[in-house]
Design a protein around this nucleic acid. Structure first.
Lengths: 143, 143
DNA sequence: GTGCATCCTGTAGCAACTACAGGATCAAGG
DNA sequence: CCTTGATCCTGTAGTTGCTACAGGATGCAC
């Protein structure tokens, strides 16, 4: 086995990692607490030390969050991307399931958008005496 | 002024209200705590007593939540629908603003859906050795 | 050696609920 | 009259994914 991996491994503190990854410091520590990130080595005085691997994992997490995956889903994806990587199938299952969630949210939002659009436009038409937005929500004026 | 409002006002307890409105008991009490609902009268022994007005307001809240309004927005809508109701304009402002939120969420989700759809379909095509879902998220295999 | 930046832990807060625990009260049957 | 089971009460803690302190310990430059 080769001892030295490459032209010297670069390491850095949590502030640097935060800047590079676009994930804020408190959030990084939070990810560690909830076991999304494994605890990094520390300096003698107790400060966290990260390297490029830590950076890559964190960026993976950030991207996944942007795609709307939950922390639990990300945990699963990380496990699958990790040491015992094998099953593209499982990854696909998670992603497909997530996609279904997204689609149902999309459907709901579209319905909502239509409903609110037509209602608001009725409202802006004139100085309506009875507001159609409140109507749609079915609030009662005495009768 | 007429003393008796109608053929006897019907009153009921929180469990009944919960069933009729489709909002669960703990949530009703929570709404009261955060001042979305005004505290109802109580029986001698301290149990909450509701009537049809309480029911109407609660249903209004439920529908608003289904439409994705935040509790703060609903608070505002309730104020506008209440005693000093006047401004359809303010209601429209709240609804329009909310509509913009919905539209931007819609745009994001659509992008997401496209991205995940194509990725997952590439994945399901064959027994891929390197999972494209993990690829897209940019996780690293040693190199 | 004196600042100031950066780091540490631990706790509390946000939305919008949900889920108890531990006790009081009500209504019906025997 | 008494017991049983349903319903109600308050208060607190948990959920998700963070963010924001407080209060203290380092690191580094001048």
């Amino acid at each position: 086995m080769r001892a030295i991996t490459s032209p010297r491994a670069e390491v850095f503190a949590i502030g640097e990692l935060s800047k590079r990854s676009g994930v804020n410091i408190e959030t990084i520590r939070y990810y560690e607490r909830v076991k999304l990130l494994s605890p990094p080595p520390r300096t003698a005085s107790g400060r966290r030390v990260y390297d490029s691997t830590g950076h890559r994992v964190l960026v993976f997490i950030r991207r996944s969050r942007e795609l709307g995956f939950s922390l639990d889903e990300i945990r699963a994806l990380l496990r699958l991307g990790g040491p015992d990587r094998a099953s593209c199938r499982e990854v696909r299952e998670i992603a497909t399931h997530h996609l279904e969630d997204i689609r149902s949210k999309l459907r709901d939002l579209k319905k909502l958008e239509r409903l609110l659009t037509t209602t608001v436009s009725r409202c802006s038409g004139r100085t309506a005496p009875d507001c159609p937005v409140l109507d749609i929500l079915d609030i009662q004026r005495s009768k």
